[in-house]
């Protein structure tokens, strides 16, 4: 079974971002720490953003369970198949420029 590349854990990433923001906004960190946190924050933002932007729906049909207990799949086909749609365009067009 092929697993998708390990995705960002949004729960964890967003919590860390919030913590970084609080620390930066407190103004109590040293300059070096502040810049390091900023850099870390930008990294997390980029990872989250990239994953949200690039996600493509993946659908498989579970046909059963093999002898070794692993799931068995085939491509999912639906008679009234899903229309291909672009991800909804956002009100803020700067979003894509944001993280290069």
């Amino acid at each position: 079974m092929t697993e998708p590349t390990p995705p960002v854990r949004f729960e964890v990433a967003l919590a860390e971002l919030e913590k970084i923001l609080r620390e930066l906004e407190d103004g109590t960190t040293s300059l070096e720490d502040a810049l390091a946190r900023y850099e870390r924050g930008v990294g997390i933002l980029k990872a989250c953003y990239g994953q949200l932007r690039d996600a493509e729906q993946r659908i498989r049909q579970l046909t059963g369970v093999g002898e070794d207990g692993s799931p068995e799949f085939k491509a999912f086909e639906h008679s009234a198949s899903v229309e291909g749609t672009k991800p909804t365009r956002r009100a803020k067009p700067s979003a894509d420029d944001l993280f290069g």
Binding site: Q57, I59, R60, Q61, L62, P71, P87
Partner: peptide, 8 residues
């Protein structure tokens, strides 16, 4: 679309 979908 980030969620993989398994249809049974």
């Amino acid at each position: 679309p980030l969620a993989e979908v398994v249809v049974r």
